[in-house]
């Protein structure tokens, strides 16, 4: 583990410590979300985001930011379902749309501090599989099935015209032990066929070619 990673993890642990004391920093002056009485707390708070590309103009980083809509934050299993059960299934979304589910405090952007040294695993899905795969991924993430410490940043389902794309973002792109563990867990929880092609892309490369899903590194097993 390099020094930066270690600091990032320490910072995260402090954050969750503050959670327990009810003194979490209120960065964007939103009310602090906590598990209600008798609810099942999650290891981390998460935010649902939605974005849809506006027709016509190509998206720059700033217009992407403007298109991001925060749907809601949750801290418990029950609060998760309150949100999740009242938004459209990804397979029923229209056009060029994305759901993002990220840890609270992490914006679903390459430039975010938590993401800038990170990258993502990409799984391309045939039409018709998005809702089911997204659910499996989201359940595994909030249920802490990945077992890679603080490495997971968030997940994205991207609805496109020909295919749908599932992405899982992690903090440290060069940490190969972590990325392969994430890949293996992804395969297991999505029940991917053994010959599935998995792609990885560093956010720094996405920033330089301004593309999410092109020029990826391809892995087969």
């Amino acid at each position: 583990m390099d020094n930066n990673t270690f600091k990032a993890r320490l910072k995260n642990e402090e954050d969750s410590g503050e959670d327990e004391n009810g003194e979490q920093k209120n960065k964007e002056s939103r009310p602090v979300v906590k598990p209600g009485k008798g609810e099942h707390p999650l290891q981390f708070n998460y935010c649902f985001w939605f974005s849809r590309r506006t027709p016509g103009k190509q998206t720059s980083s700033s217009s992407y930011d403007q298109n991001l809509k925060n749907i809601g934050t949750f801290a418990s299993v029950e609060q998760f379902f309150a949100n999740y059960s009242h938004i459209a299934r990804p397979g029923d979304l229209s056009g060029h749309s994305d759901y993002h589910l990220f840890k609270e405090g992490v914006r679903p952007m390459w430039e975010d501090d938590a993401n800038k040294n990170g990258g993502k695993w990409i799984v391309r899905l045939k039409k018709g599989l998005a809702s089911r795969c997204w659910e499996n991924l989201v359940f595994a993430m909030i249920g802490e099935q990945f077992m890679v410490g603080e490495e997971i940043c968030g997940a994205v389902i991207s609805i496109r015209y020909q295919e749908d794309i599932l992405s899982l973002w992690n903090r440290t792109a060069h940490d190969q032990q972590t990325t392969s563990r994430i890949r293996d867990t992804l395969k297991r929880i999505l029940n991917l066929p053994p010959n599935t092609i998995m792609e990885y892309k560093k956010h720094s490369e996405s920033l330089s070619d301004n593309s999410s899903f092109r020029n990826t590194s391809v892995f087969m097993r």
């Binding site: 609810e39 809509k69 749907i71 809601g72 998760f80 009242h86």
Partner: peptide, 13 residues
Amino acid sequence: PLAKSPPPNLPKI
């Protein structure tokens, strides 16, 4: 029951 009721501040999209 809590999981079934929508969150109070769900934005309209």
